[in-house]
Write a protein that binds this DNA or RNA. Sequence first.
DNA 1: CTCAAGTCTCCGAAC
DNA 2: GAGACTTGAG
Length: 773
Amino acid sequence: MKRVRLKPAESSDSVNTSSDAAVRSLLAGLNSEQRKAVEHQNGPLLILAGAGSGKTRALTFRIAHLITRGVKPWNILALTFTNKAAAEMRERIARLVGDDAAFKIWAGTFHSIFARILRREADKLGYTSSFSIHDSEDSLNLIKLIMTNLGISQQEHTPQAVRSAISSAKNSMTPWEEYSRNADSIFEKQTGLVYKEYEQNLKRSNAMDFDDLLINIIRLFEAFPAVLDNYRERFQHVLVDEYQDTNKPQYRAVQLLAWKHRNLCVVGDDAQSIYRWRGADIENILTFEADFKDATVVRLERNYRSTKRILAAANDVIVNNRRQLKKELWTENDDGDPIYQRRCRDEREEASSVVDVIRENKREHGLKYSDCAVLYRINAQSQVLEDALRSAGVPYRIVGGISFYRRKEVKDVLAYLKLLVNPSDSESLLRVINEPARGIGKTTLGRLTRFAQEQNLSVFEACNNVEHVPHLQKRARTAIQEFARFVRTYIDQLNNLPAHELARAYIDESKLLSYYAEAGGEENLDRWNNVQRVISHIAEFTEARPDAGLAEYLQEVALVDDTEQMVDADDVVTLMTMHGAKGLEFPVVCVVGMEKGLFPLSRAEQQPDELEEERRLFYVAITRAEQRVYLSHCERRYRFGELSYPMPSGFLDEIRPELVEKLGIGRQRDLGALSGNFRAARPGDGVRRKPKEETLFNDIPANEDESYSQLPPEESGGRAKIRPGMRVGHSSFGEGQVLRVAGSGDGQRAIVRFKSVGEKTLLLKYAKLQVLG
DNA sequence: CTCAAGTCTCCGAAC
DNA sequence: GAGACTTGAG
């Protein structure tokens, strides 16, 4: 975020004179195919770029070339999938044409560019320009809430499953009406109901989820031709990186935008399509030539990155996939080292072997830490590696995983701020209204949200009218009033105070900081620090962009992934998922956890399509490497806190043996027989069953709370007199008889014998007993 | 209502 | 094995 600033002021110097020469000399450094891609004038262009074939180079030079040919930077739109890729692209263009021009290009992720446009045009779709962006956690929380309200069991259908069904419906541009109409199974019918509520809820909250950022652009363009025309006019050249990973809405949006000028340049490699799971449609690249009959196709097949052996190994792997565009990668690089393969006893040994590999490369080959990357399939694998590196004193950074912005306390601060900017954002309000505890508990919130729903108000509006909400305890009412007053005070200040001052005062008054300060303990100290960091971050942000306020800040952080955070980290080893590694390169790459069930993941093994995607992922991993690849697998590994004994990944066998050198404990003993027995002794690992009770309660109607809803606790007000001998009802213990009453005032207790759980002593102040019959 | 302790779920990748 | 969620006592 910061890196972009600072420079422009000092180097607005010689945009054109020097860049002309620069581009000319750069053209000289390109091979004939790359040059073709760069010099192609108008009309659709498909660049099929194999791994390491200088794809980014072709793309950035192309943009630079357009600019020197007189295309205005702000007429160029360059879409990428990650912020990292966008930043890198901009940086490289800046080197060619200067910061000034580079900065005026519309370059960014699909989500961030579209969010920018939507913010400008928000009113046309019935949002305000300060709409909130819900991340996947927010969405999940909302879905849970809706499921609870609708009385849909979360045991049967997990909220995650519902969310992903909704998300893929949205990604295939199926609105809830249509989804519900076509719903067959119970799951789909229920999901349809949730889907409807979910969409309406987002709309009411003036919020969009990630999928909306794509879909709403299409809705906008289709419903407002004049708006579309405006952007078509603006974006005379549209370039898309990683085109193989576009999903349906992205594809459609690009088509719409590029239709007029037809200056659409897409770059991709079908062999590196690894985002099918989030709706990427590999057909988009496979059919580009059919979509645009006059498309020029350029193939970049010369690899500049890897050794011959690495390339051969990658090829051995990818040929096992059926559908591919024809492409033959070749290189004039050295043969290089073999592919190293190591069998380890467990993941700790694996981690320490990674440390050895890194040290060895540093020592023997003069490489730096930053030349090494460790790649894994799932984020959970990072921890063991982290421990090993830390205790060996090897500096590292972890990309992705639990990012700063996903920490609880950080999300709390952001939710506070979102509420300020967009008071309709009920999701954020519910998140913070009792954080830290203000005596506004679950029951109160239930009543409050119910009221809001019935009156068709946002929850914040309901708070502002708390005197009309029925059944509230006096205390809760006061607490809500106080909270609403507190938030309103700062909403009034929104335009008066600089963003970071406002944020500081606001968060201070929220007592979030003092809560962490007083709670003590190391964890709370961390949290305190993180909250402070967010506030300083806002200060930095507004310093860099004086025109921007809190709304802009929130927009920005909603769409950053952590990969950007430590861009300037010095000489450190990089740890990340294979997905995260796409587009990067390293002299040394270690891929850990090459085991069945982990890579490929067990659920992919049965399904050919998914298996092929895993294979492409492996292809991506291998082709990140310039000089050496180390593949390792373990004989045993902890998963879900349990030991498992996985087989080596089938992918290992796909590399022809001549390319491979085996290392490690596998050498010393005849492991064939030994490990075979080892495994045979433990059949069926990794298979987990759902808890048993499912069958026990099958005949009980879905709504277990029936008895509860017949006896709304509100009606008692907790003030009825309880006497020995009375029959009473309790919300969780059910029916019982009062044996004795003791104490007085707040301390008054009743001893009750319940049918279900026997004798209990209850404080009358808290236990809301119903007098029965 | 709140907090602590116990239980369950999770670990598929990211904008 | 950690974090999210549930349960139970004050």
